[in-house]
């Protein structure tokens, strides 16, 4: 088997949160807790979870946009967590990111050409102005925009076009990994498919690996080769797509799958909906033991006592649940 392109080992990310009130203490919010995974070349790993599950923090932690508090991000034999911002610079061209909000991820005071060409200025100083222009033109055409659009400003474009510009900026250095942080959730339905297709096409052509962060399982199913489910900063289940959608082991994964609405009036969901009671607990105050137990329909006393470890259920398939075997 090929060696992984990127390995994340026991990564944790903490934020300091000042509580309100006169004598509010500073508390630690554990956004990502002990997460490990490998990313293969040309692969898409879908990271799924609800608001506040730490999926965005994880993506930013991998790129060192947020500094992890513990763990390793191994890239070409180096641990990125140990590198200074200066030392990270040469690695930046291989690891890129696309954000959710298409308009706010583009600097409104720069033209599209400047936005897309900026990485070249930094990482390919050997290119002269005309060489850079040609590269920008080619990239814009590649993402489905016209080259003459480079003289315009982001506010003149629709959401879908802005997202194409972001993709062009991320792709121009031919990175090996792109973190896609909810890249289509802010777009109109009719545009989402365009952007999904574009990302898949670029992956086919360049072999770029994607970390596809999303809350939408039907899009993740379409985009990813493997799926990782997160809840309150922890990994609940990791599995290849077919296994996951066919035979998810974790009760939370099953609830998520069952809740996906289907565009079919006779069968509005893929099966009987597993209703989860209540809301997400506060990440400042996560439940003891298994973090999911407060909403789990199958919780037993053991779940409150001891956090379940990830257990293997066949190739590449792992789930963290004490009862995963007996519930099958």
């Amino acid at each position: 088997m090929n060696p992984p392109l990127l390995s994340v080992r026991r990564l944790s990310i903490q934020y300091s949160v000042r509580q309100s009130g006169l004598f509010g203490r500073t508390r630690q919010l554990q956004a990502v807790d002990d997460v490990s995974f490998d990313l293969m070349p040309g692969e898409t790993l879908g990271i799924v979870g609800e608001t506040g599950c730490g999926k965005s923090s994880l993506g930013k932690g991998v790129l060192q946009l947020v500094r992890p508090s513990a763990g390793q991000v191994l890239w070409q034999g180096r641990d990125l967590c140990q590198l200074s911002p200066q030392q990270l610079k040469p690695f930046r061209k291989d690891l890129q990111i696309i954000f959710q909000d298409p308009l706010s991820s583009l600097n409104p005071r720069m033209t599209v050409g400047e936005i897309v060409g900026e990485p070249l200025e930094l990482h390919a100083p050997e290119l002269d102005t005309s060489g850079r222009e040609r590269a920008v033109d080619a990239m814009l055409e590649r993402v489905g925009l016209r080259a003459e659009m480079k003289r315009r400003y982001p506010n003149e474009f629709s959401g879908g076009q802005c997202q194409r510009i972001s993709i062009a900026r991320a792709m121009i250095m031919q990175p090996r990994v792109i973190v896609c942080d909810e890249p289509v959730s802010a777009l109109d339905v009719s545009i989402q498919a365009q952007i999904c297709n574009l990302l898949r096409e670029l992956q086919r052509d360049t072999g770029v690996a994607l970390l596809f962060i999303s809350h939408d399982l039907s899009i993740v199913r379409y985009m990813s080769h493997r799926v990782m489910i997160m809840y309150l900063g922890r990994v609940m289940e990791t599995a290849p797509r077919e296994h996951f959608f066919g035979a998810a082991r974790h009760p939370y994964s099953r609830a998520l799958i069952s809740a996906v609405p289907q565009p079919d009036p006779d069968q509005p969901t893929a099966g009987p909906v597993i209703t989860l009671d209540g809301d997400l607990p506060s990440p400042l105050d996560p439940p003891s033991g298994c973090v999911f137990r407060t909403r789990c329909p199958h919780a037993i006393p053991l779940c409150a006592g001891q956090p379940p470890a990830l257990e293997s259920f066949g190739q590449d398939h792992e789930a963290a649940c004490h009862r995963a075997r007996e519930l099958q």
Binding site: P90, K93, I97, L106
Partner: peptide, 21 residues
Amino acid sequence: REYVESAVAIGLSRPVILRRY
């Protein structure tokens, strides 16, 4: 704003981000 994060992600130095973004 996300465009500042994206500037960090492509590796721009902080003085440049301050001046340009």
